[in-house]
């Protein structure tokens, strides 16, 4: 067996645009999933009981089924209920829904870990509800959940590869296609694997840096 990696580099512009797709889909889906996850967690904690049970079912179903099945339901099943989406919007929506269930569980634990004394103290000194959320809840929770948020964001980065199966033109699909056309699939996949590895290590490193920067906001127990 001989490996020739130069074949893959001849298609550089194509790979660059696929890389861009992977990155922006990952970032947009992660931000939307964090926002949706926060809303789900907040509604479960402060909303009525029936809503809590309904959202719990949502979280359990999403977390108990494979991402690929969810994507297939959305992409191939969607048109049967009037939801015809192109691959990229379908991928974005699927990843947002999938991620939101996991993020909501992280926020749920975060809500539960904030010492009630802090809220009571804030009420005692006369802070309004909005002030309590802005000055106590959000900053304390950010510190509590940041490591898990970073971890989940990195998991989602790897999950973007699955979007290739519903033909989203991201790295795995494009590099795989180039590899097949050039009869250099193993070379293409090896480079792809090393690339994802570097990306994941880099994200982990940046996440660790952010945690260190924000650690001055950590409260004492």
């Amino acid at each position: 067996m001989s490996l020739d990696f130069s074949i893959v580099w001849q298609q550089f512009p194509q790979i660059l645009s696929a890389f861009w797709n992977t990155i922006w889909i990952w970032i947009v889906a992660t931000i939307l999933a964090i926002l949706l996850g926060f809303v789900v967690a907040a509604l479960r904690r402060y909303g009525p009981l029936w809503l809590n049970l309904l959202l719990r079912l949502y979280v359990e179903v999403i977390r108990g089924t494979p991402f690929l099945i969810q994507l297939f339901l959305l992409y191939f099943g969607g048109p049967f209920i009037g939801l015809s989406l192109e691959p990229i919007p379908a991928g974005l929506l699927g990843m947002t829904v999938y991620g939101s269930a996991y993020f909501s569980e992280i926020f749920r634990a975060g809500f539960a870990a904030i010492p009630p004394g802090h809220i009571e103290a804030a009420e005692c000194v006369g802070l309004s509800r909005g002030q309590i959320v802005r000055r106590i809840l959000v900053p304390e929770m950010t510190m509590l959940v940041l490591p898990q948020i970073v971890n989940m964001a990195i998991i989602l980065m790897k999950e973007t590869a699955i979007l290739s199966i519903i033909t989203v033109p991201e790295l795995t699909l494009v590099v795989g296609a180039i590899g097949s056309q050039q009869y250099a699939f193993v070379e293409a996949m090896t480079m792809l694997a090393l690339f994802y590895w570097a990306l994941v290590e880099l994200s982990g490193w940046l996440g660790g840096l952010a945690e260190k920067k924000l650690s001055k906001f950590r409260f004492a127990h």
Binding site: K158, E159, T160, A161, I162, S164, I165, T172, M189, L192, A193, Y196, W197, V200, E201
Partner: peptide
């Protein structure tokens, strides 16, 4: 742990 399972 750093490479997507699909790629592996």
């Amino acid at each position: 742990r750093g490479v997507p399972l699909l790629v592996q």
